[in-house]
Design a protein around this nucleic acid. Structure first.
Lengths: 125, 125, 125, 125
DNA sequence: GTGGTCTAGACCACT
DNA sequence: GTGGTCTAGACCACG
């Protein structure tokens, strides 16, 4: 599991985990019925609290991407890559829309917003 | 004062107030030496706690946009529109950057992110 | 009445009035049975709220320096200059002591505090 | 944390906390990366509202002396003793200046003020 | 457990 | 009337 945690990011750790596991599922690196590392082992590997990993797993299960079997572990359930991509796109879309609306509310022109966007995209390429 | 509060937003109420007052100042709807509504009156109007309004006003004062006189009220100080625009641009920039990073974390290609962005920009034009 | 109000001072306006009237009494510029300007006229002269002047007069009366006769005005009562000076000295003493203790609490040496003091005394001479 | 609250002081409780924590940092009793007591525990210890402690911590963070990590706690950031000393000196300077101005406003001669000052300094030596 | 926000109401100081 | 401070307790998000 190549999961990378950015502690200084504003994004909560558990969300970083959720996002990356979703992506692993979507990419086929995690397939149906594969089992995820145990809460404890992943928490040790990432040097974070076990509760944080558990929260990530809980979220994945709530969204239907994994199934947890008591005493056995957590398994990938539906690996509907298409669906996942669409869902993630929608989230990003929502975030972008919020940023754009904020800019407009502040009276920044669409052209300026686009320029900002392109700047950021190229900068961190 | 046409301030709109979104109670279900993740953005704290006091920050929503700060953002909107900054915009009012930048747009010239609030000019230098204008006085803001009193903490109590605005809290009644928005049906929120007076402390929440006060926190917003404290933030505005800390950033230098207003001056508060004990027993008299809160007044707009420097209406440095240029500076404010730059500051707000930085905020939008940060929001866009977070959205882009999220997209990348989910494995969405830069090209797809750009397409999403353009879609949203044109859609709500 | 040569009373000077400093609106930007941290000292409340009513206290500035109280201090200066006490000094006028102590200096003999206001003698026993002299009457002070009416609340309204002084408030107009100083361009401040009548309530603020009233608060100052109330304080003076509470401390026994003036007597207010309903419908007639406010009169200087005891003009015990000696007593007044002592009292005022005590106030200043208390303020100085607080400043010194604060400095010591912060670990500033007495020598440094003395230097600060002399600096200020000479600067604004 | 030996913080002493004076409830009858004119200085707000949160400011008393800020001052004393600054001094602890400057004295090296609180070092970089040390963590401050939690908002709740300190509020219990001092028998004051948690909000009041939080306001103090917010101020410390705004001035750059601490860093707060959501869900983890509040940590001492830069222990720039030099800077802090200068800042505290300025505060004492302001307090002394206010006392001196008060004395002058009352018509006390500079010589008398100096005498008072020296008296206090020697008295409590 | 931690901090972050918000409430409803109190008391005080200043104008 | 204004702002300034404080309380006691609530709910949420994060670890």
């Amino acid at each position: 599991m190549k999961i990378i945690i950015n502690h200084s990011s504003m994004v909560p750790i558990y969300e970083q985990i959720v996002d990356q596991i979703k992506t692993l599922i979507r990419n086929g690196e995690l397939k149906e019925n594969d089992n995820l590392p145990s809460v404890r082992s992943l928490s040790k590997e990432l040097k974070i609290s076990a509760l944080t990993v558990k929260k990530a797993y809980d979220n994945l299960e709530a969204e239907g991407f994994t199934v947890t079997v008591h005493g056995k572990g957590t398994y990938v359930s539906a690996a509907n890559a298409e669906l996942l991509l669409e869902e993630q796109k929608k989230e990003v879309e929502a975030d972008l829309e919020m940023a754009i609306q904020k800019g407009r509310r502040c009276g920044i022109s669409d052209e300026d917003i686009r320029t900002l966007f392109e700047m950021i995209l190229e900068e961190n390429e």
